[in-house]
Design a protein around this nucleic acid. Sequence first.
DNA 1: CAGCACGCGCAATAATATTTCGCTGCGGCG
DNA 2: CGCCGCAGCGAAATATTATTGCGCGTGCTG
Lengths: 166, 166
Amino acid sequence: MVATRLDPIDRKILSELQADGRMTNVELAKRVGISAPPCLRRVRTLEESGLIKGYHAEVDSRELGFEVQVFAMVGLDSQAEAELSRFEERCRSWPLVRECHMLNGEVDFMLKCVAPDLSSFQSFLTEELLTAPNVSSVKTSLVIRCAKDDPGVPFEVLEERLSRSA
Amino acid sequence: MVATRLDPIDRKILSELQADGRMTNVELAKRVGISAPPCLRRVRTLEESGLIKGYHAEVDSRELGFEVQVFAMVGLDSQAEAELSRFEERCRSWPLVRECHMLNGEVDFMLKCVAPDLSSFQSFLTEELLTAPNVSSVKTSLVIRCAKDDPGVPFEVLEERLSRSA
DNA sequence: CAGCACGCGCAATAATATTTCGCTGCGGCG
DNA sequence: CGCCGCAGCGAAATATTATTGCGCGTGCTG
């Protein structure tokens, strides 16, 4: 990891931008305690180094008409690398699938899906996911409500850890 | 849902800002096909209506030293509302827990956790999660690799759906 | 068909981003 | 030790962007 090259100011920048990605550079500079130009240079460096992978607006999915959120646990018949990749590629092509994680243990993949309503998810499930090649089992769990949905990483933990090792 | 009040331009704005939340307003206006001032007015309206809940920088968690990502499926002893809320509140106070979703079915909660390494996750698991009141069972699954991690909702699906109902 | 409300674009202004420049502190090297 | 070169800073200048005010057209509504 490249994080060791980051000084406390860089980490503060990342933390602030994770919390509010549209903060002006002036405001950001004020918060991290340096002037605007070096602050912008640091942000650009963080972007170019790939530590900042992008910026996104967080939208209200329910209000936008996506009432249904589902976790799908998928088991495959073959776990050969070629088959794994094929399944991942398929997931990337399904818009309803927002996340696809390969897991250890009995279940091979965890998918997070979003759909306008139950019936559209059902048809995705039966017509796409269950009929996809190599898929042996799918267990789905509907999200009843969401208590927490924080993006990114807990910088507090990082700081705590660094202060201990210092 | 309030989405019916949105015209195609508003939806395009949301879609563009979800993909790139730091786009300048002039660029955004160009893409959605109107001039800058009305575009900015629309963005402000979307923000005030809560349809845009915020903006976030997407950071590279591995590079930042968070090597471990885990899904934890939690079962509780009591599912009384007061107990559910209490557990949710506890999840909000744990930095390592980034998401907490209540599910239907046998498992009560799905947690997405992030940690610097396996041992720090283990200590969280044994010292915090497993010892929390009312927690009866926890099954964890380590993320081996991530094939897809798209934020937000698939606007393509929304458009398709609206064009059918039109 | 007049009046009204709404949303647009244009032009002007304010704020912000970005570049340029010179200063300063720090570590390597003569 | 003292000099040099580098890296990072801040101030100032400039370019770009955000924001406001205003007049115009369009489409309801009476």
